[in-house]
Write a protein that binds this DNA or RNA. Structure first.
Lengths: 242, 242
DNA sequence: CGAATCTTTGATAAGGATCAACGCGCGTGG
DNA sequence: CCACGCGCGTTGATCCTTATCAAAGATTCG
């Protein structure tokens, strides 16, 4: 799962549209495969701004309100983007794995913060460099647009998950999504804590724990270790979700 | 509120970032003002595909799974985009008012459906025409990119709303957002039913009704009519939300 | 080994859903 | 013009899911 910079196409398609592969949109080049390298297929590529940076578990990559001039791509590990409310509540917007772009926002400032779920490496890009390409008469790299559209689709799915799913359904979706980058029957490693999962799904740690126990009792999953989970019956798990 | 094709800048900025205006992102032209006309400021504009189309209340504009070759801009009225689950649950992703673009999706097929909340008029655009511009060596119109980024920001805010807000907070956010395109103290008209609001906020009609009653008792709002609401104390209403 | 953090489980409480009934507004048709 | 019916909204009573509070394992790491 972590530690390898697998092609973005896999990473993106995998995470939130597990059932059906993302298809090409007309001739616009929205195929997620083009996300592999920012600018591939165009006359110039978007150069990263500097070397690969490493972050240790729970280290902040950027905070809410920070200048959004830089955005990132995950090289290895897992990153969470989240929002903190003043009373301590936290909503995790997304988990990002190798190949995913994050911190890619419309405003001057980051609306969310980003933290390392586990030790991870990322590479930065500058909006300013995009502007430079544009000033030189280049087209906006389609991969950026494609990534924006992908992120939008993912955010919409997340809203649906949060808006009309119960605890069991939420966890079933989460597990099947997360499992998509493993072979069937393999043990998947949840890099994040129960608290992370809870904050992603709008639940509490206790509920996560209880639902996992029930899923195990129902022989839908195995738990060889706390963070290691095997989906014993992916089909039935998916069937839980309407 | 409805019936007038106000500039998009207002419509977009208004709906989901009421507190602070959206700022320009670097030099990329992400200023939402450029959304006013698709392609303004570039050598060619994206021509609409045909005349303005009208829909009556609750009429479907497109359904989930329909070809996503066409997307739309609201000319007047209100449109909802939503997802239906097989057991009848419905999640409304967003309400779109004059100037808003909807049905703007990455896949071959629409992931959501769109329906008229009240009688409304929309105008269509074709992806194919964008491809044509690109084939002629044009850059991807920045407004499209800006709109994708705006939609992304909105979807993320919606997730936060659904994930970690209680019923009162959800309604407070909804009302203040919806009120942003009226003068302070004015009566705002909720074009949508309680069921629509409920499905947008992940609640039930009964809860919506009860919370509105409480807000009225607490002198936060007035209800001159069922669909007409006046925010008596917008500041205190906003303060409910952390 | 021991402390801190994470996870699980249990007991109880609360927020919102569900079920039920009634009221209101409005359009239709007698 | 009024009566009726229907969709929509409100309110009440009760139930259920999930949150909260509490405490006891498990795991990690110094």
């Amino acid at each position: 799962l972590t530690g390898n910079a697998e092609p973005v196409a896999a990473a993106v398609a995998i995470r939130h549209a597990p059932q059906r592969a993302v298809k090409k949109q007309s001739d616009l080049g929205l195929d997620v495969k083009t996300l592999g390298d920012l600018g591939d297929g165009y006359s110039r590529r978007l150069p990263p701004a500097g070397a690969v940076q490493s972050f240790v578990q729970n280290q902040e990559i950027y905070g809410e309100g920070d200048d959004a001039e830089i955005f990132y791509r995950v090289v290895s590990g897992v990153v969470r983007t989240c929002k903190f409310l003043s009373d301590g509540r936290r909503q995790i917007d997304a988990f990002h794995i190798a190949g995913d772009v994050f911190g890619f926002e419309a405003g001057h400032e980051h609306a969310l913060s980003a933290e390392a779920v586990c030790d991870c490496a990322v590479i930065a890009y500058r909006w300013r460099d995009i502007d430079k390409l544009l000033a030189d008469g280049e087209a906006l790299p389609h991969p950026l647009f494609a990534y924006a559209m992908q992120s939008l689709a993912r955010a919409q799915e997340h809203s649906i998950l949060l808006g009309c799913r119960n605890a069991t359904e939420k966890l079933a979706v989460f597990l099947t999504d997360w499992a998509t980058h493993s072979r069937d029957g393999e043990v998947i490693t949840l890099e994040m804590t129960r608290q992370d999962i809870a904050d992603y799904l709008g639940l509490t740690v206790e509920t996560i724990s209880r639902v996992l126990s029930v899923l195990e009792q129902d022989a839908l999953i195995d738990r060889p270790s706390v963070r290691g989970i095997r989906l014993k019956d992916p089909a039935r798990l998916r069937a839980l979700v309407c």
